[in-house]
């Protein structure tokens, strides 16, 4: 790209050896970062430099690098997935930063997401919530009814899809001042609540998933709406409201 240039930056990165030890912020200088690089490519560059200097590279989660697997996290300059909206960290590009910038890079902070190392956190709490009820209890035999025998209104199908677009990255928890996971759980509950296939177990599902969510130590939702803004997939707060409705229905 002809508009790309090189910038020099200062990084303040959280380093922590493992879950048990205490961590702290360390400062690194990195020169000649192409503004066409993605944020993670910038970290690759830093790690290459660290390894060549015989220093320990920074550990961070990442995999698909196209914004869909939900592996990458990072709290960058005070914002989940950095200073841009509708994207994950792997889609954040260095052109969002200026020459001479100081950039803070921290792991997701939540009691339910303990730090494993440096910027890597353990998000298996999300898996356990899913295991508590995030499914339709149907056997995998393929001997179900024909896919078209149960019409689903397009509007419901579209809404279910938009809820199901959640990538489980945990940005909602990270950005929420209460460390609440309700956007994640609300999205999953909504997806099934909107589809006829999911309605059969709706009551147990919402009760079980919320119970598990509470047990994991996530905070409570106070409707600040920060999660919706920082969600890379734009999951709507409506899904939390829908979960609240479902929970009320299930409780009464």
């Amino acid at each position: 790209m002809s508009t790309a240039k090189n910038i020099n930056i200062t990084l303040k990165i959280w380093r922590q050896k493992n879950t048990k030890t205490k961590g702290g912020i360390e400062t690194y200088k990195l020169d000649n970062v192409s503004t066409a690089s993605s944020f993670l490519e910038m970290l690759d560059q830093l790690n290459e430099q660290l390894v060549n200097d015989r220093k320990e590279p920074v550990a961070f989660d990442h995999d698909c690098r196209e914004g869909i697997c939900g592996s990458c996290s990072l709290y960058i300059n005070g914002r989940a997935h950095g200073p841009d909206t509708g994207i994950t960290t792997c889609q954040l590009h260095m052109r969002m930063f200026n020459d001479g910038d100081t950039i803070y890079v921290e792991p997701w902070r939540s009691k339910a997401f303990p730090v494993i190392k440096d910027l890597v956190v353990d998000r298996t709490a999300f898996d356990r919530i899913q295991q508590a009820g995030g499914f339709v209890s149907v056997n995998t035999s393929g001997n179900t009814i024909d896919a078209n025998s149960l019409p689903v209104p397009k509007d419901d199908a579209d809404k279910a899809f938009m809820a199901a677009a959640c990538i489980g990255c945990g940005a909602c928890v990270a950005t929420c001042k209460n460390g609440s996971a309700m956007l994640f759980v609300g999205a999953k509950v909504s997806q099934y609540a909107l589809l006829p296939q999911g309605k059969v177990e709706a009551t147990e599902r919402v009760l079980n998933m919320v119970r598990q969510m509470d047990e994991e130590g996530f905070g409570n939702c106070t409707n600040t709406g920060a999660c919706e803004i920082e969600c890379p997939k734009g999951i709507s707060l409506e899904n939390i409201a829908r979960m609240n409705r479902e929970y009320l229905k299930a409780s009464l």
């Binding site: 303040k12 005070g78 914002r79 921290e106 939540s110 009691k111 409570n220 600040t224």
Partner: peptide, 17 residues
């Protein structure tokens, strides 16, 4: 309690009132 370790740098105004 849900966030025992806080962030060093925050920018809450970016996403909430």
């Amino acid at each position: 309690k849900a966030r025992p370790v806080g962030y060093a740098k925050t920018n809450p105004g970016a996403n909430s009132s």
